[in-house]
Computed example of a mutant assay.
Amino acid sequence: MNIFEYQEIYRANLLDSVVPFWVNNSEDKEYGGFFTCLDEKGEVYDTDKFMWLQCRQIWTLSMLYNQVEKKQEWLDMAIRGAEFVKNNGRDAEGNWYFSLTREGKPITQPYNIFSDCFAAMGFAQLYTATKNEEYKAIALNTFYNILKKRNDSKGIYNKQVPGTRPLQSFSLPMILCNLVLELEHILKPELVEETIQLGIHSVMDVFYKPEFGLILENVAPDGSFVDSFEGRLVNPGHAIESMWFIMDLASRAGDKQLIKKAVDITIDTIEYGWDRQHGGIFYFLDVKGNPPQQLEWDQKLWWVHIEAVISLLKGYYFTGDERCWQWFEKIHAYIWKHFVDDRNGEWFGYLNRRGEVLLPAKGGKWKGCFHIPRGLYQGWKVLQAIEEKRSVLHR
């Protein structure tokens, strides 16, 4: 298959299948916000509203409006969603709840800082589309709150006994590498640079362990390895996703060495995480080869595979490394064989190890309108950039 054909596949799947699935089925026209618990055909099977998924959908709709087409339907839906979460989604201190009832009453306390991360991201993208200063203020205040809490993100909701086995988690430093670029247009330049440098250091020097050739999910406060379930945990999807964040930051700085390192880590992680028996990338692994604690360790998840597509295409665009293209074609083939639903639209999210659909739902508590549309958009546009680069080289 040539690059033009791949471009068309990603564009068409985004605009003709995935986006219509959410636009047609997810909006709660009675109470506001979005339903994310949608079955195979898009029917609502649960009405709870999860703040991080609400804000992710606000981001997606706003991004499509800003980057693809000034389609009023997308922007209006994003604004209606934003008004619902603005009015219901935060506690008195401005922390974002994890979940609400359909009507907007809080169910789960703001224990999860990723609700805040995606609120900042969603409102910043919506500000770009609307120039509504209130949305800008919400994005900024939320971002500053994240920075205040980043060393103790769970606060009073932390279940761990202090001091026994302190750990720092990869998730937040990783997401800040992307979040800071999402908010760059509304942040002070010095804060942007400080956050970028800290993010790169955390990802590439603290959580990446050359002795394993892999990124760990949890390390000690001083960055050292902790030989426990949590300390041995590898999440290939997180590591792969973080590498395209790093590539974007390295490209911004013109740091070719850092780009190459990110490409190498991407390839090493995919080769480590690939299921040689059944295909696909494992969800969790133990860095020492022990049985992982997570019983779902061998499932194949939608977001892991679409994030791999982004990192591989960016890696190929930036470096021309043929390993990236070879792995892209292999993972693309796996995705279109197992995840994509040509009949009802969107993708299945959860496969068993053999690649069979484990849960037919298209959305839930953890899967919403975000990874797939973002990845399809990125894939489409990076493939275009690869073709343009080739055209210039062959003139």
Rank of each mutant, 00 (worst) to 15 (best):
118 F>R: 02
174 M>W: 09
14 L>I: 06
12 A>N: 15
120 A>M: 07
391 S>G: 11
328 F>H: 10
351 L>N: 05
388 E>S: 13
204 M>E: 10
6 Y>P: 00
175 I>D: 10
281 I>A: 04
240 I>S: 08
201 H>P: 03
268 D>I: 06
256 K>Y: 10
78 A>S: 13
358 L>S: 14
230 E>L: 14
228 S>Q: 04
229 F>H: 14
24 N>W: 05
288 K>I: 14
106 P>F: 06
260 K>W: 11
129 A>D: 00
17 S>T: 13
390 R>Y: 04
132 N>G: 00
194 E>W: 11
201 H>K: 15
333 A>M: 11
55 C>R: 01
141 N>D: 13
287 V>T: 09
11 R>A: 10
70 K>H: 14
394 H>R: 15
329 E>N: 15
300 K>N: 10
254 G>I: 10
135 Y>K: 08
97 Y>P: 01
18 V>F: 01
140 L>S: 05
150 R>W: 08
190 E>N: 13
27 E>I: 09
114 F>C: 01
384 Q>T: 11
38 L>F: 07
287 V>E: 11
117 C>F: 13
38 L>Q: 04
155 G>W: 03
220 A>W: 04
368 G>A: 05
370 F>M: 03
46 D>T: 01
394 H>W: 10
51 M>L: 14
274 W>S: 01
158 N>C: 14
169 S>L: 11
91 D>R: 12
259 I>K: 12
373 P>Y: 07
389 K>V: 09
49 K>L: 00
251 S>P: 00
207 F>P: 08
166 P>Y: 01
28 D>R: 00
261 K>D: 02
305 H>W: 06
150 R>L: 09
343 R>P: 00
143 F>L: 02
343 R>T: 12
366 W>I: 11
216 L>H: 09
142 T>D: 06
275 D>G: 11
249 L>N: 11
343 R>S: 06
302 W>Q: 12
395 R>C: 05
315 G>T: 04
110 P>R: 02
175 I>S: 02
31 Y>E: 15
372 I>H: 05
22 W>L: 07
322 E>R: 15
152 D>I: 02
315 G>A: 03
324 C>M: 08
204 M>N: 03
17 S>G: 03
306 I>N: 13
122 G>K: 08
60 T>C: 11
348 F>K: 05
39 D>M: 06
30 E>T: 12
82 A>V: 05
112 N>I: 00
216 L>I: 03
386 I>Y: 06
151 N>S: 11
281 I>N: 05
7 Q>N: 07
388 E>C: 03
293 Q>E: 15
3 I>T: 14
214 L>E: 07
141 N>Y: 00
378 Q>Y: 15
111 Y>G: 02
262 A>G: 10
76 D>Q: 13
249 L>H: 03
336 W>F: 15
302 W>L: 14
292 P>T: 10
354 R>P: 01
153 S>D: 10
266 T>D: 08
320 G>R: 06
122 G>Q: 07
337 K>N: 11
151 N>G: 09
176 L>W: 02
167 L>A: 00
325 W>D: 12
219 V>M: 06
80 R>C: 08
84 F>K: 02
391 S>V: 12
42 G>Y: 05
274 W>Y: 15
213 G>K: 04
131 K>R: 14
211 E>Y: 05
135 Y>P: 02
197 Q>H: 14
